[in-house]
Amino acid sequence: MAKAEKKRGSGEILGVLALLFILVGLYVALIQAPPDAYQGEVQRIMYIHIPSIVAAYLCFFIVFLGSCLYLWKRETRDDILAKSAAEVGVLFTALTIIEGSIWGKPTWGVWWTWDARLTLTALLLMIFVGYIMLRSLIEDEERGAVCGAVVGIIGFLDIPLIHMSVYWWRTLHQPPSIFRPDKLPWENIKWPLLWPLIINIVAFVFLSLYLLSLRIRVGETEERIKGEMLGGTA
């Protein structure tokens, strides 16, 4: 019981940290940071766009870790970790696509373009929506966990290959335009634009970890309910 309390406490700390950084991040992104020289105010979307994708990748890395740990040690705890991280990751991936689309409309003139990163993010979303569907369609708990872990690992291994193929497809077949799909290289970002970005990335990382900790607690409680029900009928 004390362990659960301690866990809950560290979750609360994450929540407070997330809230703090979010408030500062919102202030610096919307008010303090200067508008971009080329893109104007629209550039401010980047202060949530890049943090979202960082949070999404973090979640998918956690899915991979949880999957490996589960296959190795077979502890329900690791499976709950992977399952929860997939759910939070899907949320952040979907948000990344929406933000990219809203940023693209004034920048490129269209809501959607088949640029490498946008396409890659959409594929990432499909893979992990598939993961969640698989989990919900296999009734046997243990088998679902094993199959989910395998998909989590295969999906993660596939990401670099998908990245490579999609990127080549866009660059080998059409010359890069002025609106290069890739964001400004790091060395081109100026400090006044960079540090609000860093604050927002930290904020989103804390936020995603906090949401993850909440989701894990939901999963653990559901697991305990199952345990109680099994104990009750036995």
Partner: peptide, 18 residues
Amino acid sequence: ARGREILLPLLLLPLMIP
């Protein structure tokens, strides 16, 4: 899995993109 016929292409095709 339930609904295996639809789940299989749904899982497989995004991973087959490369």
